[in-house]
Structure formats: structure tokens, C-alpha cells
Amino acid sequence: MNEKAPNAGHRHEHDDAADHDHGDGGSELSEMDLRVRALESLLVEKGYVDPQALDILIETYETKVGPHNGARVVAKAWTDPEFKRWLLTDASAAIASLGYTGRQGEHMVALENTPQVHNMVVCTLCSCYPWPVLGLPPVWYKSAPYRSRAVIDPRGVMAEFGVRLPDSVEVRVWDSTAEIRYLVLPERPAQTEGWSEAQLATLVTRDSMIGTGLPATPSDIVQRAS
């Protein structure tokens, strides 16, 4: 297959893949799986890639780096005023102090949500996203519906995530056109007085740190448990 082969569209590819994940792994591989296997074997044969390095890259972003990192940053900011001040004035350093550094998070800015201001982050041109704190972006973040509408109709987008804000709230959108990566600091939910940092981190959702969602509330947690 050459690299310009027509594409069936991502929904179809994913549906295929979900089947193959649980299939026998040999005879039912999709066209894309076969193409990428051939490419990998070519690049290994030409000495361009070390297959073990690929395994480590995948393991890192599949199991180690993810929104639990960002949740820890947010929960710490909710409980430690000094850290919050640092996060809002020098996010790269504050976040690095918790051990989250590197690729796609070299230049961080934290955006504080308040009762008057709600921030939402997008990359209209590609898929820029703060990997060290949120991991790899979800499919919808990289998709045309989100990239096209976030900057013109953020409230309409939020409604599709079940979020409706009062008309009085100022909605600020941030388009990640450079290497600055934005992390939303959502408001701490009510009725969490006395909660520990670790307890608070369980309320911090990925979407609340992008700005398409709000943190979970204590009653959400009770409902989830029952």
C-alpha cells in the first residue's frame, strides 16, 4: 500500500480495531495494522528504529503519563496557597517541582477558573496538548468538530459535555498556536472542606483541566460508589 491509500475514516478504523484487539491477532489484522507492521519492519531493517525504544515510548504514554499527573497539580493548588501562587505565576517551574517535565510541556501556563471567568483550551491548527500533565489527547480534542467550534462557540461545545454556565460568566478560549501549553485550574468544588490533597485529586477530571468539563463533586463520588 502506498502512503496515499484512501482512508475509511477514523470511526471505521476504530471499530475494526476494537474487534481485532480481542481477535486471534493473526489472521484478522486490519489493513492499517498490516501497513504499520510493514513500515516498522522496514524501519528496523534500515536501522532507523530500535523496536525496544518503541515499546518504552508506548508504555510511558499508555501507563505512566496521564491526567492523574494534572489532577495532583490541581489538588495541590487547591490546598496549598503558596503553590497556587507559584503555579499561576510560573507554571513550568511549579509543575516541574512535582516531577512533571519534558516533551509537550516545556512551557506551561496555568489558567485559573473563578465564579466570573471560565477558561477552555484548544489547538485549532493541530493537536497541541500538555502531555506531562494530561497525557496524550483524546480523539475528540484532535477532531474537526472540536477544533473548528471551540473558538467560535465554546458554550455550544461545553453543552455537548453537559456543562452550562451562567450568562454572566466570561468564557475565555486559548488557542495553542505556539509551544506554550495551557492547563486549566478549575474551581475547588464546594463541600470539600478538610479534604486531603489525595481525596481532592479524585475529583479532578481530565476535561476540567481542558475546560470542557467541571470537576466532580462530593455527591458525584457518592453516586459513582453506589
Binding site: D16, A17, D21, R35, R37, D55, P138, E160
Partner: peptide
């Protein structure tokens, strides 16, 4: 939005990402 979205949706996506 996809609830509980996996990091990758197919084996080839893992390898394409890493490559």
C-alpha cells in the same frame, strides 16, 4: 466525547505514535 476512552484505539495506533 467517548466515556473511558482508551489511550489508543488499535494496535497500529500505538506503533504509529511510537514510530
Amino acid at each position: 466525547p467517548e466515556p473511558d476512552e482508551p489511550r489508543f484505539h488499535a494496535p497500529w495506533e500505538r506503533r504509529a505514535f511510537a514510530l
